[in-house]
Simulated assay, not measured.
Amino acid sequence: MPSTTVYNKAGEAVEQLELSEQVFGVTPNMAVLHQVVTAQLVNRRQGNASTKTRSEVSGGNKKPYRQKGTGRARQGSTRAPQFRHGGVVWGPRPHPYHHDVPKKMRRLAIRSVLSDKVANENLIVINDLGLESPRTKDMIEILNKLPSSAGKQVLLVLPQRDENVVLSTRNIASAKVQHVSSINVVELLKHDYVIMPVKTIRWIELVFGEGLSAEEASLKIAEAGAESNA
């Protein structure tokens, strides 16, 4: 069973956390990864590029010159494609770009990336990432104390929105904050290190391991937190 070290905000190792084998210990499926990444990038395209044909450009209501006697090729309109300000032939037109991927494939791709992060020690688990007030300097100190190389891209995945963490991180060029429900393959691959609180790990195991919905997983974690605080 895979495991990872849990750190505190001072960068000290506090415990060893066992991870789900079916989420963090699978063999990465490169074919599925490629297909999911391609689909996600394609689905980001707006598809609103557009050009005008000769029937849509303005002007060109009369012949540029008479039909015969000039020695030149006959022309019917100055808005034909060969003229300046003429229409465009076979130019781009608005159309949707969409590539649908089955849910099982998307989840397999997520498990593949997470397993690769664990295998290469690029997944950093922290017991608590909360801040008393938004302050960029405090967030930089936390990131510098954690075992992530300087200058590397870091993705912080939170179990719930924390405004102090979001505001403290937005001016750090090498760091990005994301809610766990928005976890996706492209963002995981773009960043060298992924930092997750323990609650995020448990949410991922419930959704991608046990097959619960995002709402059910959030509710279960909230109930567990309430019981532990009682």
Rank of each mutant, 00 (worst) to 15 (best):
E12A: 08
E12H: 11
E12R: 11
A13Y: 04
V14R: 03
V14M: 02
E15S: 14
E15H: 06
E15V: 04
E15Q: 15
E15F: 04
E15Y: 05
E15P: 02
Q16A: 10
Q16T: 12
Q16H: 09
Q16K: 11
Q16R: 11
L17C: 11
L17M: 10
L17P: 09
L17H: 08
L17E: 08
E18S: 15
E18D: 12
L19K: 02
L19Q: 01
L19A: 01
L19G: 01
L19P: 00
S20G: 12
S20P: 05
S20M: 09
E21F: 07
E21Q: 13
Q22K: 15
Q22N: 14
Q22H: 09
Q22T: 15
Q22F: 06
Q22A: 10
V23A: 00
V23F: 01
V23S: 01
V23M: 01
V23K: 00
F24A: 00
F24I: 00
F24H: 00
G25N: 13
G25S: 08
G25H: 06
V26L: 12
V26G: 02
V26R: 05
T27N: 13
T27W: 03
T27M: 12
T27A: 13
P28A: 05
P28F: 07
P28V: 08
P28S: 08
P28E: 04
P28D: 07
N29R: 13
N29Y: 12
N29F: 07
M30E: 11
M30W: 08
A31D: 12
A31H: 12
V32H: 04
V32Q: 06
V32W: 01
V32N: 04
L33Q: 07
L33G: 03
L33H: 05
L33E: 05
H34M: 10
H34I: 10
H34A: 14
H34S: 14
H34P: 03
H34C: 09
Q35S: 11
Q35P: 08
Q35M: 09
Q35K: 14
V36W: 06
V36Y: 07
V36I: 07
V37W: 03
V37L: 15
V37T: 11
T38R: 10
T38E: 12
A39P: 02
A39H: 03
A39C: 02
A39D: 00
A39L: 02
A39T: 02
Q40K: 05
Q40N: 10
Q40C: 02
L41C: 04
L41Y: 06
V42A: 15
V42L: 14
V42N: 15
V42F: 13
N43R: 04
N43D: 12
N43W: 02
N43M: 04
N43Q: 07
N43V: 06
N43H: 05
N43Y: 04
R44S: 14
R44K: 15
R44G: 15
R45P: 02
Q46M: 07
Q46D: 01
Q46Y: 01
G47P: 02
G47D: 03
G47L: 01
G47R: 00
N48A: 09
N48K: 08
